[in-house]
Design a protein around this nucleic acid. Structure first.
Lengths: 107, 107
DNA sequence: TCTTAAACACTCTTATTAGGATGCTATTCT
DNA sequence: AGAATAGCATCCTAATAAGAGTGTTTAAGA
């Protein structure tokens, strides 16, 4: 299905995220079962996420973060952030569609 | 499958993330097809992510962020961050397993 | 203005994942 | 020290998502 294997840095990033979820959970004194239950997902899924398996869905991640009270972090994951106005202005000129440079092999 | 419907704030967070991915892509003058190709996933998947469908996988998100050069943001998503030392110390005492309070209905 | 193709909306099929066991290990807490 | 149970590993199956294809709309750019 996937043309490329998952790049190593991506693998590491996901693994780190998993460890941090585990940490955050334990800091709050929640068991995996409890977190799963509150998030409305199965224990297996929580475990796989904490273990760093890349297959988990964004929905499940969001559910967990919601329970942990850290949903904002997901929401602002790619938020270019602070300089709202400047960015808004900058983005007004952004194309809705991006055309390839008309050179032959443009990707 | 899911006991609870996806909480509204989670839905919004995912939608916001999708919009931000779209923005980041267009800022880099990449088409959906191009981003998909470079990420090793299908255009449909990119589209569904940008659209804010919660079903996408973390792996695909990571692949995209990798291509966009924003993987660090995923890696530090739940990173409690700056105060490394203090946190390390705090975490040394953390239990590996969390026992329920022995009152009957503990979740 | 007019052409090209980017983005969108579907549908269908196959591949993949989530969930539900079960058994095992080892950590907590009494 | 010993009992209770959290967390881990693995297997199986039903549920779900990813990919591929097709047609349509509409913005970009010549």
């Amino acid at each position: 299905m996937n043309r490329y294997p998952l790049p190593e840095p991506a693998t590491r990033a996901i693994a780190k995220l998993g460890r941090d979820i585990s940490l955050a959970r334990r800091r709050r004194r929640l068991s995996q079962a409890s977190l799963a239950d509150r998030s409305g997902i199965s224990v297996n899924t929580v475990r796989r996420l904490e273990k760093g398996e890349p297959s988990g869905s964004i929905e499940h991640l969001a559910r967990i973060l919601h329970v942990l009270g850290e949903l904002k972090r997901l929401e602002t994951l790619l938020d270019t952030g602070t300089d709202e106005i400047g960015l808004l202005m900058m983005d007004e000129g952004l194309p809705q569609r991006v055309r390839a440079r008309q050179s032959k092999g443009a990707l």
